[in-house]
């Protein structure tokens, strides 16, 4: 655990850039959702913000017909190929966006506070184990709440320097203790 190797007495939160994963945007009509779940071997939650896991794959429902799928890079080609073979029966769109976004992880005692510096929505109202597409400052981000003070945040690649620069300012501010 990263939290264990970190001294939070001096660090209000830890900001890490996580290694790349295979990331897909999946779109399918709700009528075909069940069929596609079977074909892909994934659960596609039908409520916005809900998540599921199957093996090492994670799914987050971002919209009524939109899911984000994360899989280990090793499983990437397998997912693409099952989707392709299901396509004729179950029309859908599976677009790889692994490189579109970079995943930042925020954890530690003031991770939630750090997010409230940039997110207008009530972040604490997102239950652990759910997620949301929302705003951080001027960047659209996808938040995954993995623990009370443990978040992943997908940020479009070109927005990362800005998001990090804001979080650096927040870090300095929180370190000051005021």
């Amino acid at each position: 655990m990263t939290t264990q190797r970190h001294n939070f007495d001096t660090q209000p939160f830890l900001l890490e850039e996580l290694p790349p994963v295979a990331r897909f945007s999946l779109r399918v009509r709700s009528a075909n959702r069940g069929a596609l779940e079977g074909a892909l071997g994934l659960e596609l939650p039908d409520l916005v913000g809900h998540r599921s896991t199957r093996g090492q794959a994670e799914v987050l429902c971002l919209g009524p017909d939109e899911w984000m799928i994360l899989t280990p890079e090793a499983d990437r080609d397998a997912l693409v190929s099952v989707a392709a073979s299901a396509y004729m029966q179950i029309p859908h769109s599976l677009v790889e966006v692994s490189d579109r976004e970079i995943t930042l992880r925020l954890s530690g005692p003031q991770a939630l506070t750090a997010l409230t510096a940039g997110c207008p929505r009530d972040i604490d109202a997102i239950p652990v184990g759910r997620g949301a597409r929302t705003l951080f400052d001027n960047a659209t981000v996808v938040l995954w709440r993995d623990g009370p003070q443990d978040f992943r945040m997908n940020v479009w690649r070109s927005f990362v320097p800005h998001v990090r620069a804001i979080l650096d300012k927040v870090m300095a501010e929180l370190k000051s203790g005021l």
């Binding site: 945007s25 779109r27 009509r29 017909d65 029309p91 859908h92 769109s93 677009v95 790889e96 966006v97 692994s98 490189d99 579109r100 976004e101 479009w156 690649r157 070109s158």
Partner: peptide, 12 residues
């Protein structure tokens, strides 16, 4: 229409 749009500006 059975068609979906995905931004890939930053994918490439």
């Amino acid at each position: 229409l059975d068609v979906w749009l995905t931004s890939t500006t930053e994918q490439w």
